[in-house]
Design a protein around this nucleic acid. Sequence first.
DNA 1: CTGTGGCCCTGGACGC
DNA 2: TGCGTCCAGGGCCACA
Length: 273
Amino acid sequence: MPELPEVETIRRTLAAHIKDSRIKDISLIWPSAVCGWKDKGFKELVLGRRITRLDRRGKYLLIRLDEEMTLIAHMRMTGRLNYYPDHREPEKHTHVVFTLEHGEVHFSDVRKFGRIQAIPTSLCIQESSLSKLGPEPLEPEFTPIVLKDHLAKKRVALKAALLDQCVLAGLGNIYVDESLFRAGISPQRQANTLSEEEIKQLHKSIQDVLQAGIDARGTSFRDYRDANGEKGQFEQALQVYGRGGKPCRICGKTLERLRLAGRTTVYCPKCQK
DNA sequence: CTGTGGCCCTGGACGC
DNA sequence: TGCGTCCAGGGCCACA
């Protein structure tokens, strides 16, 4: 499930292939995967435009086109963007094929949750799902003070607060659990009760885990692949996610599994207070 | 404000 | 082997 490190890896691998290329054709195999803007259809907005750069905001991939157009892509759980240098028949779950000057980009998604929206770049921030996003965790704007201020308003469980994209953009179930483990803080703690020291530790853990995830080119627990179809390597570094019932790698105590904010949550009852 | 649960989806794991 | 059931979950929305 692509979270910040996976989307960043997709961004990098895709950009290497498609930057400066023109979109010559679009095949909408499952048209619901895309949406246009106002009364303009997706094809109308996108066809013939050149890809100028790729950005990322939280878990959203932003494909910038010329004439001030942006494609906002969200993979949700199982979405993929694959680049192929040569023509290739769409696979079973491929919903959109972009034919470029050199090669093709296939958007596929087994569970059909992922979407690509076309929107004028000037409206990208205020009139899209990007508008409510919190700070970027790896940018200088994200400081322990910012984290503290955002958490101070939340009376919910810390895990729920960190999954909230308004608090912080880009964390999902995997990296929240991993961050909390590294910070030694329980996911059940009320978000606004952390001490200064705990905030600092959590801030550092979030940045460290995300950077390590990017360095490992993402986590391929189930479905994730980058634009070249390659798996990430971060799965082997996971300390708690997917390890419920197994021994903690630090203290040996059995990792506990519980349901929090509607998500499976794994933590060490001894290492995390 | 907050928590919960449903919705969108399919494939894989599991039980009988 | 085959069938039914459950689970995975990001974002959004309705509801208590």
